[in-house]
């Protein structure tokens, strides 16, 4: 009835408040399903972990201390992809060993892998993967140990 009433007696609909000033504050940024865009800069293993394509739509992977946004290759790194174990983790050792096993990636509460035990051949393999990531994916920041958690 409301529309006919407005047509006859005047009146109009107002839209919802898009600014959020009249509603409860929200820290939403962009996507409504997640808690906003990824903030570029410094990542800890704990903060990196959620960007695994499942808990957050973005897929971030750390290689040699740099964090890359690999969301465009969801088919490889996303849930059910062949390299999904790398998503949200430091993938350096896995790439160096050309292994996708879960054993090659460390949990967020473990110290960051120093990669000191890699052979020259493995180091070379890692360097070529690093070059590949650098040329293909945007770099969003660095992976650093979190005081009290990783050090």
């Amino acid at each position: 009835m409301s529309f006919l009433m407005k047509l006859v007696f005047g009146g109009y609909n107002t839209s919802e408040d898009p600014t959020g000033v009249t509603e409860a504050p929200s820290a939403d940024q962009g996507s409504k399903n997640n808690d906003g865009p990824v903030v570029e800069g410094k990542f800890y293993p704990r903060t990196l972990y959620k960007y695994n394509g499942h808990d957050h739509e973005s897929i971030l992977i750390a290689v040699k201390g740099k964090v890359f946004d690999c969301s465009q290759s969801r088919q490889f790194y996303g849930p059910s992809g062949p390299y999904t174990s790398f998503a949200g983790h430091d993938a350096s050792r896995g790439l160096a060993l050309n292994s996708f096993d879960m054993e090659t990636v460390r949990g967020w509460d473990q110290p960051i892998d120093t990669l000191e035990d890699l052979t020259p051949q493995e180091q070379e393999s890692l360097d070529s993967w690093y070059e590949f990531f650098e040329s293909k994916y945007p770099c969003l920041g660095t992976l650093e140990p979190e005081p009290g958690v990783n050090v």
Binding site: S31, P37, V38, E40, E57, D69, S71
Partner: peptide
Amino acid sequence: VTTTRKENETA
């Protein structure tokens, strides 16, 4: 809207 942003900036 971009999916990333810099610190002290919006997307």
